[in-house]
Nucleic acid binder design. Structure first.
Lengths: 184, 184
DNA sequence: GTCTATAGCTGGATAGAC
DNA sequence: GTCTATCCAGCTATAGAC
């Protein structure tokens, strides 16, 4: 049922998520959605938490890898989680309970990124005065999300140039990406 | 009625936009919404177009100003239009007609930014090989939108550092901002 | 745990009086 | 142009049979 909800969020947007639709996609009954999750808020929160935990897990792995900067950049650059996040951001606009959970989670996530990357960046000889790690993280996050949103719309102008620029700078700090996923 | 719709989008999210709500906020009747705009798709498109025209107008002005880079950055950095855009992006996920209009508009807008800033950036001595104008625009747009989204959530970690970093680089190219809106 | 039934509401859209 | 009335669909949520 969590899976079904996620699917509907991605395919049709949050407004299409209803007990009926979820039940239909999950192949069960709409009354059971209430039985297991209570209200719709609770259902959304459950889906969000599951996703947030997955994201935190990926972040932990990325930070522990031999090329943390590359790994974090690639972990951010995930289409489906970005699209899901977009839906949740819009959803939070009129669901207070969901928003509260999201704000709390965002703060923790950002803190985790910062604690993990600050020492790494400093060890690369980056002057924290000129290039604050917190700013680097915000930059990478913002760029990544923007690119994915654009892509979802089929707008790609400036896309390649931006990725090339960012990755050139990452490579300058951390060396070329070891296990190349994208051949450039 | 366009104004009312915009207000609801900002305050309560797109799912709250209904003929009843729009009529209530606009102080009119729900049947009139259909009379003037036809379907809900048409209403959303009308609101979007009105906003897009306003955005294009601001961009034109910014590009014509003595400090185009600063002006474009500030024009991007507008809270209400960013929040509205976020709603429209989510909305477009399940309204084909709205999406089509938005994609078309996004392409034109990006093209306008690119045509306007490419020569400016080159005149500042920026090597287009190392810093492609298209990438600069995507960077600034992404960062700006991300910051605003964060702010709406009350997450501000790394915010100040990022703005400082970006504006330091803009100042290096175009000189200090002439008419300071933000005292630093 | 699972399904049926139903209450009670809000939604888009149209027809027709004025 | 404006308002009332109305149709029908979909929604959340709960009660109760099995």
């Amino acid at each position: 049922m969590l899976q079904a909800t996620e699917q509907i969020l991605l395919d049709e947007g949050y407004a299409a998520v209803s007990t009926r639709r979820v039940a239909a996609v999950a192949g069960t009954d709409k009354a059971l959605v209430h039985y297991y999750f209570g209200t719709m808020d609770d259902l959304f929160i459950a889906v969000f938490r599951r996703n947030a935990e997955h994201g935190a897990e990926r972040l932990r792995e990325a930070l522990a890898s031999p090329q943390p900067l590359w790994s974090v950049w690639e972990a951010m650059h995930d289409q489906s989680s970005t699209a899901l996040m977009t839906e949740f951001i819009a959803l939070a606009n009129h669901r207070k309970a969901v928003k509260a959970v999201m704000v709390d989670n965002s703060r923790k996530f950002r803190r985790m990124q910062l604690d993990g990357l600050a020492t790494v960046l400093e060890s690369y000889g980056l002057d924290p005065k000129e290039w604050p790690p917190a700013a680097i993280i915000v930059l990478l996050s913002g760029i990544s999300r923007y690119l994915r949103t654009d892509e979802a719309f089929g707008v790609g102008l400036g896309h390649d140039e931006t990725v090339e620029l960012v990755e050139r700078h990452i490579a300058a700090l951390e060396g070329p990406r070891a296990r190349t996923k994208r051949s450039k």
